[in-house]
Amino acid sequence: MNIIEVRNLCYSYEDGEPALDNINLDIAKGKTTAVLGGNGAGKSTLFLNLNGVLKPKSGSVYFEGREIKYSKKELLELRRKIGIVFQDPDDQLFSASVIKDVSFGLMKLGLELDEIRARIDAVVGQTGIESVMDKPTHALSFGQKKRVAIAGVLVMRPEVIILDEPTAGLDPQGVSEILGLLCDIREKTGVTVLISTHDIDLVPLYCDEAVVLDKGKVVFSGLPGRLFSRPELLREHNLRLPRINHLMNILHDRDGLAVDTTAATISQARRSIVNLVKSGGR
């Protein structure tokens, strides 16, 4: 089942240059979809069209099978259900106080104060930001700010979480922590995740689906494995193969080894190589 469907969506900014050009897209419920594309491909613009902050010039967006109507009430409901974690947490965290920022939005849902506190406590534990609750936002590290930004989205219990470049600017440990956190959230809540990223290597590890955007157009949509079997398409749109995939291709094509060229993660590659060695090289 698709949670979001986009039909013939076109969007252009004031200068007239089309930012999104006839986009058709299905986002599967409960899956993690990678949205790939170089800088300026239209990823962020697409996201803002999905939660109704930007209104398409033509075409339509369907959420849970219903076309988005741009009435105030419906938009607020939509934005509760689709949470965006922006690339720069300093753009998202408007308050100098962590608790104020995390509770923002929650206050409008008309919940009891106890329920609000319980939700905040749960999310604070899940995102591991207990130790920074008393600190002012500007005293937090980049990774901590990112977690607070995710917490602020999670408290709303969204059905879709969109993360714009969640790993940009983080050190390797920060990257694996954030991705681990995302896997954990997905497992517990079954939430649909959209991740825009430049980091191709994390796609085979964490994503079920992949979409490639270039110059405002969808140039690929489908399983990551299918995408990585078309290196020429990736190169054409300023992307590349995952490193492991690339290595397996070289081993296959140049060295004539019968390895699995679709292996894109360390564990898949390991299995393929071990099998090859055990079977005596052929």
Partner: peptide
């Protein structure tokens, strides 16, 4: 502004204080 709008900002800030 875009981020606030995405979070359902309606012109006033409501939140829990320390």
């Amino acid at each position: 502004g875009l981020a606030l709008e995405s979070r359902g900002f309606e012109g006033n800030f409501e939140y829990l204080c320390e």
